[in-house]
Design a protein around this nucleic acid. Sequence first.
DNA 1: TAGATATATGAATAGCTGCTCATATAAAAA
DNA 2: TTTTTATATGAGCAGCTATTCATATATCTA
Lengths: 123, 123
Amino acid sequence: MVDKYITADRCDCEVIHEDVVNSVRTKMPKEETLYDLAELFKVFGDSTRIRILWALDEAEMCVCDIAYLLNMTQSAISHQLRVLKQAKLVRNRREGKVVYYSLDDEHVKMIFDQGLVHINEDK
Amino acid sequence: MVDKYITADRCDCEVIHEDVVNSVRTKMPKEETLYDLAELFKVFGDSTRIRILWALDEAEMCVCDIAYLLNMTQSAISHQLRVLKQAKLVRNRREGKVVYYSLDDEHVKMIFDQGLVHINEDK
DNA sequence: TAGATATATGAATAGCTGCTCATATAAAAA
DNA sequence: TTTTTATATGAGCAGCTATTCATATATCTA
């Protein structure tokens, strides 16, 4: 069951299934990719941003529309829209004083739907 | 272009496209659902947890294996495994002193893959 | 039994994050 | 031009979170 006795720098235990670990290690994407993935999900990990994205999936809206819809301040929404823009999840266009935001990624809804599948599983 | 002039409690602006907002409002999932969705993505929004999940997607591993693989302390991994278990993303089984963890949701990989599609888009 | 080992967990803390508030900027209207 | 309005943004702060450290618990071994 147990293969070898090794001690890693940080891991403060000794029983390690080295063949399993080595096998998994070769299959892991590189650190940077997983870091980027976590950063993306971090953006999804806030209900305000989730609500904004969901709303924009239904229709293009201006900042004021979104603030009104979610009953939040314009400033709070504007800050979050910046986060979403940096993550390349939304784009905007200016029309006079009004700035309209819309979704910039057709995968967002698919990711959300997969998440909902998990949530709706009763285990 | 602009439909009506309204002022919401929090929104500190006046120009609102009321028909758009109302239409979107009827299509939005209920608040609780979107909150739960954000909570799920919050779990994915940490590179340590992402790496653990990815590793467990390759093979069942004990706490020590994971700590060794990721070069982190057993305690840090154990704390994160608890978070993942509470989110029903991993399960465990005990075999003597050793506790083995494995994925508890086949959608995780699909969600990750969708996320990677977004990341790999060069815009 | 006592000792060793794998894991779990509570407390403490440093760093992060989302909001508020005040203010800046941009564009239209007066 | 000045005023008004929509949006953007920096500073500050309260709350959260991921890790560390110490220790508890569970199980096997001697």
